[in-house]
Design a protein around this nucleic acid. Sequence first.
DNA 1: AAGATTTTCGAATCCTGGTTAGAATGTGAG
DNA 2: CTCACATTCTAACCAGGATTCGAAAATCTT
Lengths: 203, 203
Amino acid sequence: MSQSSEDGATAKSQRTRQRILDAAAQVLSRKGYAGTRLTDVADVAGVQAPAIYYYFGSRDDLVEEVMWAGAHRVRVHVEEVIAALPDDATPLDRILAAVDAHLRYELQISDYTTASVRNAGQVPEHLRVRPAAEEASYSRIWRDLFHAAQDAGQLRADLDINIFRLLLLGSMNWAVEWWNPRTRSLDDLVRQTQDLVRHGAGA
Amino acid sequence: MSQSSEDGATAKSQRTRQRILDAAAQVLSRKGYAGTRLTDVADVAGVQAPAIYYYFGSRDDLVEEVMWAGAHRVRVHVEEVIAALPDDATPLDRILAAVDAHLRYELQISDYTTASVRNAGQVPEHLRVRPAAEEASYSRIWRDLFHAAQDAGQLRADLDINIFRLLLLGSMNWAVEWWNPRTRSLDDLVRQTQDLVRHGAGA
DNA sequence: AAGATTTTCGAATCCTGGTTAGAATGTGAG
DNA sequence: CTCACATTCTAACCAGGATTCGAAAATCTT
């Protein structure tokens, strides 16, 4: 506690903790909650299983943190992408940008988000509490996006934006189950999904 | 083996086996693969855990049969619905009918299909082999449906029917994660999903 | 109703991983 | 170089839950 310049841990320690977390995200995103053994996580992290307990209280703690991070990161990422849009971007443009950001992030960038999407409905209840807060706040972003587009008259009149939003997020999230980079380019998927929004929801 | 009029099991025995299978589908659809304990299944079926072994070789055998049945039943159901359509139904009409049938079946009718949808990506590899055949043949139905609609010129020209089909099935399958009968009526969900197809894919 | 066969059960076993204990090793500070 | 503390490991330990083993109970056949 006294040897380092920062908080309460040396940089190397931070990195090991991170390595374990990354490993957990990777294994979790591929094998699912049931199939994720601590020894597998340890192997990927290049460490022995008990070492994990130096950084995390339990297997569930570790899983929960991955789930939380997955929801948190994609939210922050999408927020940033939207915020970086030019001021004259229309509400519909913003939705399309969010679609792009969400798909690329969950499919290509982050094992954390893949893990959180794939296991959201699989982990035991008590592990969903903290992540749920992040998910709720991510939902609000999308709700706001759709409201804005609706107010701007960019959506067809008979559209139920709540159901449409859930269907859209579902179609994107389910892509983690089938999308394969060797079969279909991510660019194509993004484009078709945006088309789905333009035609399916646009006025 | 000699006391009964049929194959190799009395009617009561058949019913008990069925009860266990139903219980497994129910538990699996709610708790997921990891959370499904044989004692829970036994409780729901009104039997002691070891009794399950009289009918199934192992927990995995039981799970596999539920997964297979879930995929099989929804396929048969959708096939029947389509077959019952009047001859002058257009290809697009058939797709909309399939959407209706798929959603109602997985959300309202069959725990088997709910279980198979929710756990498709969670169960260990070796349990996916047999169910995968059913899923493949179910996919073909949808592929054919979209091809027919495309040939009939009912879909917009720049639509990638493979991606659209996967996105559509994804949006419907993901509904098992969020749809709640007390929040939204199934009728509304069906209608909005059909609208999504009409506007999102229609010419 | 007796005997054979099917079905179910209670109790015991076993195995897989998560978890703990305590020793060993590494690392920064003086 | 040595001490104090941080980190990691090896070797148990333990619990949950699947599975097995006869023995009972139910059911069917004659």
